[in-house]
Design a protein around this nucleic acid. Sequence first.
DNA 1: CCCTAATGTTTCCACTGGAAATATATTTGC
DNA 2: GCAAATATATTTCCAGTGGAAACATTAGGG
Lengths: 189, 189
Amino acid sequence: MGKKPYHHGALKQALIDAGIEILDANGLEHLSLRAIAAYVGVSHTAPKNHFGSLRGLLTAIAATGFRRHADFMRAGLSGDDPKSRQQAAMQGYVRFAVTHPHLFRLMFSPSLCSFDDPDLSAAAGASYDVLRGIAAGLDWDKSGAPDADLRAQMMLWSIVHGYATLALAGMAPPLDIGDIMPNFGYLSR
Amino acid sequence: MGKKPYHHGALKQALIDAGIEILDANGLEHLSLRAIAAYVGVSHTAPKNHFGSLRGLLTAIAATGFRRHADFMRAGLSGDDPKSRQQAAMQGYVRFAVTHPHLFRLMFSPSLCSFDDPDLSAAAGASYDVLRGIAAGLDWDKSGAPDADLRAQMMLWSIVHGYATLALAGMAPPLDIGDIMPNFGYLSR
DNA sequence: CCCTAATGTTTCCACTGGAAATATATTTGC
DNA sequence: GCAAATATATTTCCAGTGGAAACATTAGGG
């Protein structure tokens, strides 16, 4: 009959999905271990078997978040024009933050999730790789200094991440990220 | 004798100071109502008389933070050269974040403090005014669009706030903020 | 001087994450 | 096949948290 089995079967993924749904629906402040477990229909200690602790679960949720984040950035990428590619990636970055504000905050909260986790580390790295590719199209620093690439990446990342963060904090009005970007030179391809 | 009086005398300010000291020493995660109260030597319900709730106390702490934040930005301001003034303000912004990382995080966490509080609102506004003054020296957007000033401010703020945030999250290497600033034109004075 | 308002304390409650012991199901080894 | 080992989930307990309510103490203004 419809009696629920003792074992869930796919609890690990179900907990991650539940966490993201609670984040989108109720916010980071209401994301408790007990809330996630109750959402799935298990006791609040069940997640421990799969994630060790709340921190482990949040880390897995953040990793999923970074994978979707990278998808958002890659979504509008088409063609070879460096400037339009940059615009698309930056807009995707902001669009993700605005669409999933609480997940986005979690993803950048080292007090909540562990970036030494291989899965989260890889997911965050893949997201950064998109940004790295965009920065490579910039003709900004002609100094030839060894850290010129890094600094170009950090400049791009700082602008887009800063705007996204301020927007989520209610401190920035809704603007097109392209309208607050400095004017760069671009490398031809 | 050395018996402690029933009334503290200056509990309100003592609680704010204690909060900031705990923030700097133990971090935002350990900043509890009970910890602050115990630090001062009162019961955990005593703050309610002065701040209503933990949120009210955190709001007052954040306001103090923004006043110090503005001081950091103004600290290096001297002379009339727009570019060096910009550099000094931006460096002050980052220096504050690095010096008081947990206070800085609190100051930009609307989930923890209330920006509709007049005191916090004013303090944050005063801090923003420094940035506004710096942005006024920029010769960046010649479009003459009505929101050109706002966009210049948001561009500056996004870069510096983004870098500070990423640095506190352990995602940005230590760099001089001036080295990841775009090259602007500047207005003569 | 006394009454009122301000300031603190005590006690209680609902909530949190985690530890430990227990129950149940699945898988492995023979 | 079947027992033993492992994986998964529950129950119970504990130390925290912030806040509400009732009470205690003090300060100040008629």
